[in-house]
């Protein structure tokens, strides 16, 4: 670990200003915000992140969850994952989010982890986390260790020949299905970005993961009002029963009226280089009568573009079963 400076601003503007001089807000950033620290400190210990300066966000007034007048929810960047998971409005209107959060990490980690930190958690790719290994994300041009290495956990959707790293978050999958908006503030102004545009595909530049620029600070996330009568569900599949990242997961939100699906949102986790919204699956579900065959057809559509590696071909079938089952469970309760 490198030595670093540590500051603890008490307002958002000075935090954003302090970070503005960084050359990048992506891999290799010399200035980093620190929230719960559960991703960042690990990576600093591994020398994968080597910031010269840490700006602690824990004193910022970003820790509240508020119901918006128009019916949505505003979630402060510093709201802890456990608080969010147990928030009455989340439990009631966005159960998919609560379930996703509670399926992730451990109770201790969720007590530390924050909304913004979770949005920006880094891939668990073993080659990314080991500085002696090649990795285009960590060291552009050094090659991708995972492609010809241990790639069982890696992505099958949104990959490029330069990077196949999975976005490991559970929360992000739920937020993607919920069509969340991410609100950003920098020294000059504020802007908001729909979650589906927030993450970038690796392409030729896997070191760039999001649209964030130096000095950009996530202040909060908003969720639109829940669709009337919507049922939502998060299903996570993994090797062991708890405390493991997903091999495949699905966040689904559906409304069924007159025995027809008239609203469906589908996002997949554990398989995409970003939290994977599947409009293909949503289209396959639109207006159909819920049935196992239809669900399976939607799953087939979602995985159409999947490109497996040497060890993770099984994820295609696993993800199909995951999504099919999630839809079945969600519509059963509908």
């Amino acid at each position: 670990m490198q030595t670093f400076e540590f500051t603890r601003p008490s307002d958002v503007t000075s935090a954003a200003t302090a970070a503005a001089s960084a050359k990048t807000a992506q891999q290799g950033a010399e200035i980093r915000f620190i929230a719960g620290g559960t991703t960042l400190i690990d990576l600093m210990k591994l020398n994968v992140e080597q910031p010269h300066m840490l700006i602690d966000l824990n004193r910022l007034p970003l820790g509240d969850v508020e119901t918006l007048p128009e019916g949505g929810l505003k979630i402060g960047a510093m709201v802890r994952n456990s608080d969010l998971a147990h928030h009455p409005a989340v439990l009631r209107y966005y159960p998919v989010l609560s379930q996703a959060l509670l399926s992730g990490a451990s109770a201790q980690l969720r007590n530390k982890a924050t909304t913004s930190g979770n949005l920006l958690q880094r891939t668990r790719c073993m080659y990314f986390r080991d500085t002696t290994m090649p990795c285009n994300k960590r060291e552009p041009g050094s090659g991708c260790g995972a492609i010809n290495g241990a790639n069982r956990m890696m992505a099958i959707l949104g990959t490029s020949e330069h990077c196949i790293a999975t976005n490991p978050s559970d929360m992000n999958v739920a937020l993607t299905a919920l069509e969340a908006t991410i609100h950003i503030q920098n020294a000059q102004d504020t802007r908001s970005v729909p979650i589906n545009e927030f993450y970038l595909l690796p392409g030729h530049t896997p070191q760039r993961e999001t649209v964030l620029e130096p000095g950009d600070l996530i202040t909060h996330v908003t969720l639109p009002a829940p669709a009337a009568g919507a049922k939502s569900l998060y299903l996570k599949l993994r090797d062991r029963a708890s405390y493991e990242f997903a091999l495949a997961s699905a966040a689904v939100i559906v409304t069924v009226e007159n025995n027809r699906i008239n609203y469906a949102r589908v996002a997949l986790g554990g398989v995409g280089t970003k939290p994977w919204r599947s409009q293909e699956a949503e289209q396959a579900l639109a207006g159909v009568t819920p049935s196992e065959d239809r669900f399976r057809a939607a799953a087939e559509a979602a995985l159409q573009g999947a490109r497996p590696q040497s060890q993770n071909g099984f994820k295609i079938e696993l993800t199909k079963r995951c999504l099919t089952h999630a839809l079945k469970l969600a519509t059963q309760t509908a």
Partner: peptide, 14 residues
């Protein structure tokens, strides 16, 4: 390569 307790999976209580 999986030389850590996240990637070397052992039983949990669950």
């Amino acid at each position: 390569i999986n030389s850590n307790l996240a990637d070397y999976v052992v039983s949990t209580h669950a």
